[in-house]
Design a protein around this nucleic acid. Structure first.
Lengths: 294, 294
DNA sequence: TGCAAACTGAAACAATAATTCCAGTCATAA
DNA sequence: TTATGACTGGAATTATTGTTTCAGTTTGCA
């Protein structure tokens, strides 16, 4: 088998794409990764496609078959073999071994990794400690919301939003990333919405168009931006349905919104996470889109 | 014993060892593991041998072939198939899938979570399944970045940003929530910054003010917004330092930014999480503020 | 514009893997 | 002890998977 390949190579029948330096193939994942990154730019179209896929879905490469990966990466099975060979491997299986060995190690070390992290945490840079802190806060917030989120309320909100003529999104300052994400996603999904405060115009004027057939989705956290509160209160007075995402039953939004969601984000050094709120925002967006399909 | 006889009599040619309750096979690793432990004592010699081996070398089962595992466990290939069938699986491959799924993602996946919810008798509405999905994706993304994030690179970026005269933030479309968050936080912290695309003005005009003493922080993910790429490339050509957050070594930002961060967000139904990116963004913001204090 | 080389897709082919079958062994109970 | 059925080993069979081939297409260059 191998000797046959060598023979073929000598006769010039063997496939070697473009700038192939006939170096030996990397035996560990990190070298392989580096090699792929280095070579990718000079690779032909389909091989580059495989390179990208391999880096982004390395688990799939480890587990999949030539056929299944080819399907997922949208190439021919033969392209995968060519890709492997162009990196110096005997064939796809040979390359796959490297991906598998990595996964093996990763799993083996999983328990030890926390220990490893602690060791490095001592020497870790200031910035990576901060990163750890924010990641912890995000994870904690997500777990909290998972426990607390009321499915019935969620369903009610989705229902209202799905029926709404236009969805008005109010979220300023710290909540603006959330409302702007929702506006972008709603837009992509073809759902009419109006992001208050986005344009140069007056926010109060924008929201004055909201009617009973619309829904206002307001997002506000301590300290509640006074402008948000005022806008929402005025709109509520005109009997426009309000849904709110806020952080406490004492929020000024709580009494005027139905339903309203309590999302308490954990913080690190006073900077609150946004992970849970964002997750809820994405949920509402996608759920509304799915509901509307029917 | 009696039931075994009945099975053998009715199903004649199929092999069903000893106390086979014809329950459906576990679909997740933990249930499978429990089932094996429970059954092992009453299993015939060779099957018990396989049971022991499977529990002690579960990653071999995930990666190996019938032949290689049979060799390692010192049984016949057919015994492995029998073992799988005795647990209710169609064959060895079916059983192997369960071992593989465990290695695939250490976060509970979608199917398992739904199952989990059913077990806990939570009324799983459609929307709360979606929420679960996004929360999973967020947590997975955070874990991934925790592993991959390079502390030295982070330090380098913080250093550059701390020394910058003005920080230019470029992030459009899907990345806009991130860049707008950073702009808001930098503003609060008294750090001069310019959020490109925020005002009504021309983005290219805004960024043309950037000089060598400033730093551009660009955020862009597949499919890279062409406007972002063009702006960053033009700015890079003028030797303005660029820091990028993107999702692949093949990103058009990767070659022109130094340092650049690879953040791969997991997705649910095609909607990518933003949790990891946001966590990184918050880290940069806060770390820069702390650095400047000194 | 025409040519050669590089690249790609589809299908044939070869190799390997999973599964089934059956003859034979072993333990048990009449 | 012998008959019966559970259990086992190994080979035969079938299915799946990886690899190669080749015709056709594209690309780069003269």
């Amino acid at each position: 088998m191998t000797s046959k390949n060598i023979h073929s190579a000598v006769l010039g029948k063997f496939y070697f794409p473009c700038l192939c330096q006939n170096m030996e193939a990397p035996r560990d994942f990190e070298s392989l990764r580096a090699r792929i990154v280095e070579r990718a730019p000079s690779l032909p179209r389909r091989l580059a496609q495989v390179a990208t896929y391999a880096l982004e879905h390395s688990d799939e490469i480890a587990f999949g078959t030539v056929a299944s990966i080819a399907l997922a990466a949208e190439v021919q099975p033969s392209t995968l073999v060519r890709f492997s060979q162009s990196l110096g491997y005997a064939g796809f299986s040979d390359l796959q071994d490297v991906f598998r060995s990595r996964l093996r190690d990763r799993i083996m070390n999983y328990e030890e990794r926390i220990e490893h992290m602690r060791e490095h945490a001592i020497t870790a840079s200031k910035a990576s400690v901060i990163f750890s802190g924010f990641s912890d806060a995000s994870q904690k917030s997500l777990n909290d919301l998972r426990e607390k989120l009321d499915a019935a309320k969620l369903e009610e909100a989705v229902d209202m939003l799905a029926k709404a003529d236009t969805i008005f999104l109010i979220g300023l300052r710290r909540s603006f990333p959330i409302s702007s994400y929702m506006s972008y996603a709603f837009g992509k999904l073809g759902i009419r919405n109006n992001l208050i405060g986005a344009t140069g115009g007056l926010a109060s004027e924008d929201v004055s168009f909201a009617s009973k057939r619309d829904v206002v989705l307001a997002i506000s956290f301590t300290p509640y931006a006074s402008e948000t509160i005022k806008l929402v209160q005025d709109t509520a007075a005109r009997n426009v349905p309000i849904i709110a995402i806020t952080d406490s039953p004492f929020s000024p939004l709580a009494p005027i919104a139905k339903p309203w969601f309590e999302v308490q984000e954990a913080n690190f050094e006073g900077f609150r996470s946004m992970a849970a709120t964002l997750s809820l925002a994405m949920t509402l967006t996608v759920a509304v889109a799915e509901r509307r399909k029917k």
